[in-house]
Computed example of a mutant assay.
Amino acid sequence: MKKRSAIKNDLFASEHHREKIDRIGDPLAEIEQYINFSALAAEVDSIAPRVDSTQGGRPPYPTETMVRILVLKRLYNLSDEQMEYQLLDRMSYQRFCGLTQAINIPDRTTIWHFENRIGEAGAQALFDGVSAQLFKQGFIARGGQIIDATLVPAPKQHNRRSAKELLDQKAMPADWKPAKRRQKDTDASWTKKHGESHFGYKLSINVDAKYKVIRRFQCDTAKVHDSQHFEAVLDRYNTSQDVYANRGYPSTEREAWLKEHGYRNHIQRKGHRHKPLSECQQRRNKRIAKTRARVEHVFASIDQMGGKLIRTVGQARANFAMTMMAACYNLKRLVYFQRAGIKAF
């Protein structure tokens, strides 16, 4: 007797799959429910207007569609090639980007050209647009501000010592052909942290202690010390005057400046070889750590979005990627507030 197969074929199978996804819960549907992507697209168009297609040629894809693609790409840390494949293969991605019935799906080249057209200014417009939606919902900066930095790794560069010396002098080895030069990241740098070497860039952020939302950020190369971005990311709109930071930020001048401008200093003290911290200073550091640790949750969330590794070459494109990290983190934070029914006060 012939056994029946457990697989059932149906002309409407794709519709059944879509309905089951909705029952289980599609995280992208939640994002679409709570984020105004048309407003984000308008912000981008104001910075980088769409190309005029009246002269002929294929019209560009809608900015909103491309913005949604950039969000997906950053949320899951996909390359342009991987993004193209997933748009062709995944039903949820197609639905999120409004491409379910589309024959022509944006390819890797289209995505690359869009990123280059909007540039850093376009990524900043997306960050500002998400910030505006947070503000509209009442999630303003409260509870004090926490400042910290994280290393963002890039593909490691292996150069000979002679080439390194030239690159340090902002020069390029004469024997490098144009194709090789395009693949060499001369902006990323090496640094050491906890005895380990790291290559890439640095992202400094300011997070409010109440909602753990990124309020300000600064991008740089890895070798720049964290403390160099302190003033650049300080947020004067936080409703509290408390400023928290780890032991990499204290200095006599900074403490005097904070006091002069009315801020309450909660920067952890740092001991020295011949001058260890007193018990009082250690207790103070522990008290500060309870609040300061909230910024580590932010870095962990960014790392969970497919990891922090960037695949680009050069500071400008790295800045674009890091700005998108901050924008997409805030976007997910707003979705969390809305889903959980958290009200601003």
Rank of each mutant, 00 (worst) to 15 (best):
N104C: 07
L126G: 03
F337M: 08
V44D: 00
G129L: 04
K332S: 04
Q218P: 06
S240Q: 00
R236L: 08
K332N: 01
N116W: 07
A149R: 06
E19S: 11
D208S: 06
K308E: 12
R161F: 08
I24A: 10
R264Q: 14
F320G: 01
A163R: 02
D10R: 11
T252E: 15
G98A: 02
A232K: 09
A289M: 04
I21P: 04
L11K: 13
D148T: 10
A245G: 00
N159C: 07
I103V: 13
Q281N: 09
S301L: 12
K308T: 14
R95P: 03
V207M: 11
I205R: 05
D10M: 06
D148S: 06
S227T: 14
D45R: 10
A121G: 05
F299V: 02
T54R: 15
Q315F: 15
Q55C: 12
Q281R: 04
Q282P: 02
G143F: 03
S278H: 06
D185K: 12
I105R: 07
K270C: 08
L277K: 10
K8D: 05
L75P: 02
A123G: 02
H261F: 09
A245I: 05
D128V: 06
Y61G: 07
D220V: 08
L166G: 05
Q183P: 00
H274M: 08
E253H: 10
N238K: 05
L277W: 10
F37L: 00
I147C: 04
L40F: 02
L11E: 13
F345K: 11
R216E: 05
A344V: 09
D45G: 03
L75V: 04
D80V: 00
R247Q: 14
Q241W: 04
P250N: 04
A209M: 00
K2P: 11
M325G: 00
N285R: 04
I118M: 13
